[in-house]
Design a protein around this nucleic acid. Structure first.
Lengths: 158, 158
DNA sequence: TATATATCCGACTATTTTACTCAGATATTA
DNA sequence: TAATATCTGAGTAAAATAGTCGGATATATA
């Protein structure tokens, strides 16, 4: 099982999308700036998210990505599944042939753990995260930073 | 967060130790044969397990490793912690400085997930696993295989 | 219709981690 | 003293991660 930057980036980007969903499609360039994730890397991740029909794209100026469903019915487990192969903790990916063609000594333990993690992460939707106060606070801070940067750019130009 | 072969090997080896604890210290060579884990790799893992005082060693012939505590008070989370750095799912390892010196958008989610996994894995002791019927069945099968192999060796010698 | 903006796509690469191997030192029992 | 084991450190192949780079394609707008 893996939970690395890749899965975290994907969830972060999807949450950023959910937070800004009211203002039309969001470009990866915007997400890249706000969340400090390389644009090219985001493109790779969104190719996978699009294949799994979690987002849809609008090409051209003013375009970007939007959630392909309402945020209430997009669950964290789906996002991680889309970019990482799986959140399965067993070595045999559930096949049960991990030791000489049969289950290994600890197969059932990892199987239980996988179930536990999967239940936890598929019980949380993007909408749930958007509603959380601790996350709202972080989002507000990030938006304020973005506006401040924008004003600085304007000041330099004028 | 990672849960790969390394952590699984460590738990499997510790469980093997618990299952054979009544017959004195168990050599890594025995575990290597039963669980099909490379001896040299086991040596590396047990160096860490020993540093974390989960096992103690007896050198010389007839020696091997034994649990340094009773199996009731050795928990799976400890074993994984000992060989993997951590089972923390956050990028900042709990420090809260994952985004421009502050917490990132999804910090609290990963923090909650880590807590969830940690609670699950520290609620399970080696003794719990030894008592599980599905695991007993696997252990019995492995012991039977070992005896059969042993008899084959004897037959070849004689 | 030109231009800028954005998604799309594939190939390539540096770094890190995993999962080992190997050589040998050290301790202990018989 | 010989065999058995733990110990230790260094090295290494393969895989995954975390990107970069160059360019093609679609589309809104001036």
């Amino acid at each position: 099982m893996r939970l690395t930057t890749k899965g975290r980036y994907a969830v972060t980007a999807m949450l950023d999308l959910a937070l800004h969903s009211h203002q039309g499609p969001t470009s990866l360039a915007d997400i890249s700036k706000r969340q400090e994730i390389s644009l090219s890397y985001l493109e790779q991740l969104f190719a996978k998210l699009r294949k799994h029909e979690l987002v849809s794209s609008v090409r051209g100026p003013g375009g970007g990505y939007k959630l392909s469903r309402e945020s209430e019915s997009i669950f964290i487990a789906e996002i991680i599944d889309a970019v990482n192969e799986t959140i399965d903790a067993t070595n045999c990916h559930g096949a049960g042939n991990c030791h000489k063609g049969d289950v290994c000594l600890t197969h059932h333990l990892w199987s239980d753990l996988s179930e536990q993690i999967h239940q936890f992460l598929s019980g949380i939707s993007l909408a749930d995260l958007v509603e959380r106060n601790d996350i709202k606070a972080v989002a507000d801070r990030q938006d304020a930073q973005e506006r401040a940067q924008h004003e600085q750019v304007l000041a330099v130009i004028n």
